[in-house]
Design a binder for these strands. Structure first.
Lengths: 221, 221
DNA sequence: CAGTGGTCTAGACCACCAG
DNA sequence: TGGTGGTCTAGACCACTGA
């Protein structure tokens, strides 16, 4: 019944924005005005407005005021799932199988297949920088998915992702047990620790068998 | 040179987490300890820790303490671009062309093509709920992309997205001027205002000609 | 110039968790 | 029961904006 006051203030403003009462570009009541409306301290309304600004719903300008953000693009929160957890959630048995392991220079290259109920649903080609992750050289990746190991053992600071659609070539089609030319979802990721690339991976999912789903709210930038 | 103190606190902790000094599950210094470390008030460290919690880097538990979050999945902030702006950014001329308009029941159905330098790069099939957006019935969408119009005129609260890879069928291939079976990136979106669906759209991009890219940091959930 | 948001302080009460 | 985070107050100084 009694959510924190700053949450109620935030929710009320979100409602006003979503309903169109406060259209994009409209001025939001000043902190002073909101203090009076809700009979509360400035820190409280500041927390509410700060959260809206973080969410991208409003834009705050020192000396000028707070305004409803223009809707330019939609920003979307995509959860790149842990494959094992995702398969388990579907009630299927997950297994990873290594198909190729090459060490060349400072790079460890790994090809592998992700299986659900012994049926391949994704393949991946990965390189790991041994200069950044020397421990990886000693790990047995024949049945352990390198992504899971890296996630648990290697801190990383940021990453980049590219999502595209490709037609499976002959080798990929064979590994995935589909016909050549089948549309697949390709996810390319590279993870960095500071200026060093930790790992780079390309995962190929059978197009119709794997979706990325998300829900999200409005967000500019 | 002197960022706000709460940002410095946050940055220092992020660094410690990214470097592995504070591994997942590790306990973060209490607010009291951080107050002493930085000789500041509790609200200041609270703001820093709150931001880290919002970002999903740490988990805070009343009465227990703050802990580095386990890395479960990567969450990814994906910007669904405004097509016109994206094309303009590439230095190409954007144009939208309507190919079909049908009004049936309370639904307005629109098919259209997005062109870059007069070359099709995406097609879309959209329905708009006229019960929620009656104004749309009077809009001339022959050259105006409905997405842009909706973005500017209709408030919405949330949406869902599904990304998948599909092979273009005969009609889609013709509209996109590619061969039948070409791998395409499909983005299905539905937008809601409260409990009412505002619009539903399926956009098909030529797989190799369109990528979704993003950069992101670690984030659980 | 007056008004705005950005930051920060030094308190306070509470709900919750662990030992 | 003592320590934790969640919330809130009533001030304050500053940088910036707009008229």
């Amino acid at each position: 019944m009694s959510a924190p006051l700053h949450q109620r203030i935030r929710a009320n403003l979100e409602e006003a924005i979503a309903s169109g009462d406060l259209p994009p570009g409209a001025r939001i009541p000043t902190e002073q005005a909101l203090m009076a409306d809700y009979s509360c301290a400035r820190m409280t309304v500041s927390k509410a407005l700060g959260a809206l600004a973080d969410a991208g719903l409003i834009e705050r300008r020192k000396g000028a005021g707070s305004f409803v953000a223009q809707r330019r693009t939609h920003a979307l929160m995509l959860a790149i799932p842990d494959l094992a957890a995702e398969i388990a959630r579907r009630g299927e048995a997950y297994r990873y199988r290594l198909t190729r392991r090459v060490r060349r220079g400072g790079q460890l290259s790994l090809d592998g297949v992700h299986l659900a109920n012994e049926r391949p649903f994704a393949i991946e080609r990965r390189t790991i920088a041994l200069g950044v992750v020397p421990d990886a050289a000693a790990v047995d990746f024949t049945a352990l998915a390198p992504g899971a190991w890296l996630l648990a053992h290697v801190p990383w600071s940021e990453a980049g992702v590219r999502i595209s659609a490709v037609a499976a070539n002959a080798a990929e089609a064979m590994a995935l047990a589909v016909e050549r030319g089948t549309a697949c979802l390709a996810i390319d990721r590279s993870s960095w620790r500071g200026a060093d690339r930790v790992t780079e991976v390309r995962q190929l999912f059978i197009g119709t068998g794997w979706d990325l789903v998300a829900r999200f709210g409005p967000q500019p930038r």
